[in-house]
Amino acid sequence: MNVEILLIAISLSMDAFAVSISKGLAVRHVRALDVVMSALWMGGFQALFPLIGYFFASLFGQYFNAFGHWIVFALLAIIGGNMIREAFGDNENDDAGSFDWRHMAPLAVACSIDAFAIGVSFQFMTVNIWMAVAAIGVVCAAFTIAGLYLGHLIGKRFQKPAEILGGIILILLGVKAVLNHYRIL
């Protein structure tokens, strides 16, 4: 797996990590079934959405080849900036301790919207899409599990820094795409 895919997977996992920390804080006991189901929800959606975005972009990719590097930059900068903005917002959730599908499905979708845009950007990068979505899903599942346990054990201390770091990494990867296109890197 190349380093860029790993960094993207980690960055995309920061939203799920932050949500999982909140959920871990809200429960008295972290049950194994809740951990497994949370990892499947978050990791599954984080893997599915870039795949959908990739194939969506493949339908329209021929129109964007001339400026695909700018699309990659814009998408990653917007997503990264949004992650940083959300880190400074109020993320309190009254239903944070609920693990049923009515609570997990909307969270999984909300945490995966940026993954759709990443999938679109993959169309303009040299990426093995199957390896990329597998890596994203597995890394997100791992971060979800870690977030649940960390939230339960030590609190919200890492939620904001994790989202900020993920946003910065995505923005820097977008800048790198533009610099690579112009052969500056």
Rank of each mutant, 00 (worst) to 15 (best):
F143H: 04
A87C: 06
H152W: 14
Y54K: 06
A96Q: 08
I118L: 07
H69T: 08
V35F: 01
Q62D: 12
F64I: 10
R102D: 04
M83V: 02
A108G: 06
I136N: 02
F99V: 04
L165K: 07
V27C: 01
L25N: 04
N82F: 10
L40D: 00
E163L: 15
C140W: 01
P161W: 05
D100V: 05
C140P: 02
L150D: 03
H69D: 13
D114C: 08
I71M: 12
H29S: 02
F45P: 00
F122Y: 15
G61L: 11
K160H: 09
G89I: 01
L59W: 05
F55D: 06
G119S: 09
I79N: 08
F143C: 13
G167W: 14
P106W: 07
L148I: 14
K160M: 13
G53I: 02
P106Y: 05
F73T: 05
K156P: 06
A108R: 08
I118D: 02
A142G: 12
L40M: 14
Q46F: 11
N82S: 10
K160R: 15
I171R: 12
F116G: 08
A77F: 07
L107T: 12
G167V: 15
V138P: 00
G44E: 08
F56Q: 06
G81S: 04
D90Y: 05
I78H: 03
F64T: 10
D94E: 15
T144K: 01
I171Y: 12
F49L: 15
L148A: 07
N93Y: 03
Y54P: 02
N91H: 10
D114F: 11
A47N: 03
G61A: 15
G61R: 13
R157P: 01
N128W: 02
